[in-house]
């Protein structure tokens, strides 16, 4: 049997009937609903946790490499040993702390729909 024909035969026999397709679609819909539900409930807690962690990290990195953004901080000499661990985060940190912010940016939870 030529290769193309055998491939066609395999694909015909492996083609799922309507029920598995319905099942797959149902799974996708349920997954989407679960995600929406998470977005409306737990996501805000996750964002809050991320912000708290980022605030601490901002401050920590600032104490070590604050000079990079023009603040004359004198870190202890042993902070140099931390540098290899920070290098990957420095670009994102600089963007985060130097980005212009809106007055109400940190307080906008739930207020979108006044």
């Amino acid at each position: 049997m030529p290769a193309a024909e055998s491939r066609r035969a395999r694909s015909v026999s492996a083609r799922p009937g309507p029920w598995p397709r319905v099942q797959a679609r149902l799974r996708r819909v349920l997954h989407a609903l679960a995600e929406m539900f998470y977005g409306a409930t737990g996501f805000e807690f996750e964002r809050q946790a991320m912000r708290v962690r980022a605030d601490l990290e901002n401050f920590f990195i600032f104490m070590i490499v604050g000079e990079l953004i023009g603040v004359p901080v004198l870190p202890p000499y042993y902070a140099l040993r931390l540098l290899p661990y920070l290098v990957g985060d420095i670009a994102a940190w600089k963007r985060r702390v130097l980005r212009p912010r809106e007055a109400v940016e940190r307080e906008e939870f739930e207020l979108h729909g006044v």
Binding site: A32, L33, E35, M36, F37, Y38, G39, A40, T41, F43, E44, F109, E110, L111, H112, G113
Partner: peptide, 11 residues
């Protein structure tokens, strides 16, 4: 989907 849930709940 997550963002839709978050945005809708917010507004």
């Amino acid at each position: 989907n997550v963002l839709y849930g978050y945005h809708f709940k917010s507004i």
